[in-house]
Simulated scan of single mutants.
Amino acid sequence: MSDTADADGLTVGQASARLGVTVRALHHWDEIGLARPSLRTGGGYRLYTAADLERLHRIVVYRELGLGLDRIRAVLDDSTTDVPGALRAQRTQVAERIDRLQQLSAGLDRMIDAHERGLLLTVEQQTAIFGPQWDPDGPAQARKRYGDTTQWQQYAERSASRGPEEWQGIADTVAGFERALGDAMDAGLAPGSPEANQLVERHREVFASYFPLTRQMQVCLGRMYEADPGFAAHYDGIRPGLATWFRRIVDASARAHGIDPDTAAWQ
């Protein structure tokens, strides 16, 4: 079919170009009886009249406002339809959608910040929660070192949803666990004992606030606590020798689960 029309109407292709909708959409509206061309050419091709185009224009406007095709049909054809009421209802839905999108946008901003910063807390909040010995540059250093790992991504995803109260709860839980470690070492618990193994399991549960910790990863972490001067100073500040004792109970628990601590990998 040539894309030409009689003087009295426009072809589907011409109407599509005029209105900025697809030919497929026009065919669909024709099929469901929403907007049918009123004329035919001598060759039997259907043409849209000026009145047809006006109806199509209204359909396009209402569709852009978010109304479904059934609702549009009612607005155009049902004289009992409360058009202002229908539009107000649609406006309410649009406002609710905007609110959801704004919340989504804010959530994405927090997620981006968490991936880039780690902790979404001010320096003052970090000091109040984690204590005066806390290094506010620690998260940035951790991101530089671990930012391309799955564990950093998991940590960031958890961090994005946490505020000061949640972090305070985590800090309190960690402090309670560290006190329990010190008390257990003072009590002379032997590595591999049921009580020591329970502490190892508790450590994995506590640490899961940051990211899931496998037993092999826990072995690597225990050895880092002992070897890294900063971590060793922290644990030995709780009890002299605690960093080494903790590494020993983790190693003993790992062996009980068939893991050789000397070959454990971060996986």
Results as ranks from 00 to 15, higher is better:
residue 54 E to K: 09
residue 54 E to T: 15
residue 151 Q to D: 14
residue 215 R to I: 07
residue 36 R to W: 06
residue 201 E to L: 15
residue 63 R to Q: 09
residue 211 F to R: 06
residue 238 I to W: 00
residue 195 E to P: 07
residue 19 L to C: 08
residue 196 A to Q: 05
residue 181 L to V: 01
residue 205 E to S: 14
residue 179 R to A: 15
residue 23 V to A: 15
residue 160 A to M: 00
residue 32 I to T: 10
residue 72 I to Y: 05
residue 63 R to F: 03
residue 170 I to H: 15
residue 256 A to S: 12
residue 44 G to H: 05
residue 124 E to K: 09
residue 165 E to Y: 09
residue 7 A to N: 11
residue 239 R to M: 01
residue 225 Y to L: 05
residue 75 V to Q: 09
residue 119 L to Y: 14
residue 164 P to D: 08
residue 161 S to P: 03
residue 103 Q to C: 08
residue 121 L to A: 06
residue 234 H to E: 02
residue 182 G to C: 04
residue 212 P to C: 04
residue 266 W to E: 06
residue 129 I to S: 07
residue 122 T to V: 03
residue 196 A to K: 02
residue 3 D to R: 12
residue 144 K to F: 10
residue 198 Q to H: 09
residue 57 H to F: 09
residue 208 A to V: 01
residue 172 D to N: 11
residue 56 L to C: 00
residue 154 Q to N: 12
residue 245 W to H: 08
residue 168 Q to V: 01
residue 149 T to E: 10
residue 210 Y to K: 09
residue 218 Q to K: 01
residue 189 L to E: 14
residue 266 W to C: 03
residue 200 V to N: 07
residue 226 E to C: 11
residue 147 G to K: 01
residue 57 H to D: 15
residue 172 D to R: 10
residue 106 A to C: 09
residue 260 D to H: 03
residue 130 F to L: 07
residue 220 C to K: 02
residue 5 A to Q: 08
residue 189 L to V: 12
residue 51 A to S: 13
residue 107 G to Y: 08
residue 65 L to P: 10
residue 11 T to P: 10
residue 166 E to A: 13
residue 71 R to A: 15
residue 255 R to L: 13
residue 128 A to W: 07
residue 129 I to D: 00
residue 66 G to A: 08
residue 106 A to F: 06
residue 203 H to D: 07
residue 122 T to L: 02
residue 152 W to I: 04
residue 250 V to C: 04
residue 97 R to C: 03
